[in-house]
C-alpha cells in the first residue's frame, strides 16, 4: 500500500512517472503542510497537492539513533529538513522528518549531514519492515523519501 500517487507526466517521461510523488497538501488559505491534514492549521479546506520533490531542503537538525525498534535499521540516522518554498509562499514552514540515505544502497553506511546542509529526497520502497513492530502493516504506507546531501 502506498500513500503516494504516481506522477502522471505523460509517456515522454517514463522514468519520472514510475516514482511516487512526495505529497504535501495545499489549502485554500495558501498554506502547505506535510503530511496532509483534513484542514490547514487555520481551518481552511484542502484544494490540492504539492510535490515536495520539486523543492530544495536544508537540514534543521539530525540524530543517529542506536536503540531502534523491531524492523528498523540500526543505527538509524534521521533528520528534520525544511523545504525552501520560494518567495511567494508565506505560510507556516514546510518540513519533513526522514531517514538519511545510505551512501550505497544496502551497505548500511549513511551520508554525513550537518545543520544547514542542503539535501534532496530520494525514494525508498520500504523504510522499515512492515509487521515487525506493533503497527498493523495494512494501516499505513511503508515507502517514502530519504534525504541525501547535494552540493
Amino acid at each position: 500500500m502506498s500513500e503516494h500517487e504516481t506522477t502522471d507526466t505523460g509517456a515522454d517521461d517514463q522514468e519520472d512517472s514510475a516514482e511516487p510523488t512526495f505529497e504535501a497538501a495545499e489549502y485554500a488559505d495558501g498554506t502547505v503542510t506535510y503530511p496532509p491534514h483534513t484542514v490547514s492549521p487555520n481551518g481552511a479546506e484542502r484544494v490540492g497537492t504539492v510535490d515536495l520533490r520539486e523543492y530544495a531542503a536544508r537540514v534543521v537538525t539530525w540524530t543517529t539513533s542506536t536503540a531502534t525498534p523491531p524492523g528498523v535499521r540500526e543505527p538509524n540516522t534521521l533528520a528534520i529538513v525544511e523545504f525552501e518554498m520560494g518567495d511567494d509562499y508565506d505560510g507556516p514552514v514546510v518540513r519533513a522528518l526522514g531517514q538519511i540515505a545510505e551512501c550505497e544502497e544496502g551497505d548500511g553506511e549513511t551520508f554525513d549531514v550537518d545543520i544547514g546542509d542542503r539535501v534532496k529526497p530520494v525514494y525508498a520502497d520500504e523504510l522499515r519492515e512492515p509487521g515487525a513492530g506493533i503497527r498493523e502493516p495494512e494501516s499505513q504506507a511503508w515507502d517514502g523519501f530519504r534525504f541525501r546531501p547535494v552540493q
Partner: peptide, 12 residues
C-alpha cells in the same frame, strides 16, 4: 504514520 515508517522513537 509518516514519522513511524522512518523508525522514529521518542528518544530520537
Amino acid at each position: 504514520p509518516v514519522e513511524y515508517k522512518h523508525g522514529v522513537t521518542l528518544p530520537s
